[in-house]
Nucleic acid binder design. Sequence first.
DNA 1: CGAAACTTTGAAAAGGATCAAACTTTGTGG
DNA 2: CCACAAAGTTTGATCCTTTTCAAAGTTTCG
Lengths: 249, 249
Amino acid sequence: MQKAALPDSQAMIRKLRSIVDISDEDEAAILALPITVRQLSADQDIVAEGERPGSCCLVIEGFACRYKILPDGRRQIMAFHIPGDIPDLQSLHLKVMDHGLATTTPCRLAFITHHDMWGLCERRSAIAAAMWRETLIDSAVGREWMIGIGRRSARTRTAHLLCELFVRLQAVGLTRGREYDLPLTQTELGDALGLSVVAVNRVLQDLRAESIITLKSGTVTLLDWEALGAAGQFDPSYLHLKRPPEFGT
Amino acid sequence: MQKAALPDSQAMIRKLRSIVDISDEDEAAILALPITVRQLSADQDIVAEGERPGSCCLVIEGFACRYKILPDGRRQIMAFHIPGDIPDLQSLHLKVMDHGLATTTPCRLAFITHHDMWGLCERRSAIAAAMWRETLIDSAVGREWMIGIGRRSARTRTAHLLCELFVRLQAVGLTRGREYDLPLTQTELGDALGLSVVAVNRVLQDLRAESIITLKSGTVTLLDWEALGAAGQFDPSYLHLKRPPEFGT
DNA sequence: CGAAACTTTGAAAAGGATCAAACTTTGTGG
DNA sequence: CCACAAAGTTTGATCCTTTTCAAAGTTTCG
């Protein structure tokens, strides 16, 4: 157990600031939380379905995902989590995990015990509200994915996801201009989009051929934001950000 | 504005009790809430996408749904809400609705202002926790739908939904043995399942032909719970009920 | 009783899934 | 730093579940 190194809890603060106003006292209370930092390699379970975790985990660095395995072995990824997210905040209220949480890339994670989390929420109701709000935004993102999977074409869904990740990463300062790291294989994208690898691959080919994006060795560049947004029917309001996303020229 | 008639707020209490323990003081606090009861006919918007509601609504009687309309006019239903549910509890934290809420059948709804809701949550932290928990279960249900839409066949999804509704309705006492009212058209089921009406119709035909269910004039009977659960790969744990569902013989 | 809303059926088309195999990139150990 | 194996991407061809379109039955309800 160690005290938060500044750059570590900083991630959570930056994230919370992107969705809600945080006072200095609240910030101090967060920084004072005892956390345990753990480094995991890629494709490790953070919490498995059926477990009863005793702490919540904050993603400091890396990508994680929420998933469920079907009886036939196929997988559905239900969310991607980026630095600043607390993917299992829900375990504070729902004791048994109804899905798994895993790293997608090597990750640095900060664990905060439920006990400390409860204490923080009681002492600082603004933080409790912010966290509740965070879980609600998480659902909103899930609903948007549901619409995509249920009603949008392979192309539209894929474009939508690329837009969403750009905006979310930008909100926590992880984009470079119109470019960002997308450390996901096409199989993982497919599992998230409800598509086969082949389908994902073909859509990406098309988007590249139309000079809408560039994607190689894990880096995406949005060459034509307008076109990508249109292709993905993307409207960021469901992300409930405090300030609208920006797209430099 | 009127005081809660007993049978009205009772719905919320029964629902909360099904997912969490409620003390007598908590119950009294809920019953003391000022509510406005409104009766809506079928297919009316309760709140539209883009609105900023000033109150939350509790479903007392009838079915409601959460939906979004796509640019091409198609609709995706993202949740069904039954008596006891508070479908827009999230508006307490997310000011602008990112989706619409509509009645599916005639509904009797109780509106509680955000102001009163906040007051209740502040005075009674157990209720605040129960409500947060309720929104989390709502997300869990959404995730399960996502899995269905993304990875399960038309047949499996449909069967899953029939199981889910049975269990949820049973938890609030709205089933009669292995039978319940399903006041939804096949088009609505399709919009929820991400299927065309035709596909829904064919699945229902099959389930009937195999004597797994009976469905006519809005009443479903689960003739063979085992078979339906298997067909739908149904495991109720994601509903996080306090007590497991029961299936009489 | 009749119109409107639903359900049902048939036939054809399409979007993706699946299968298989070649090609590239990445990361590791020698 | 190279060589290789493993992982990931790409391409082609075929199959299949669902969608779409169309039209005929049925209910429901005013």
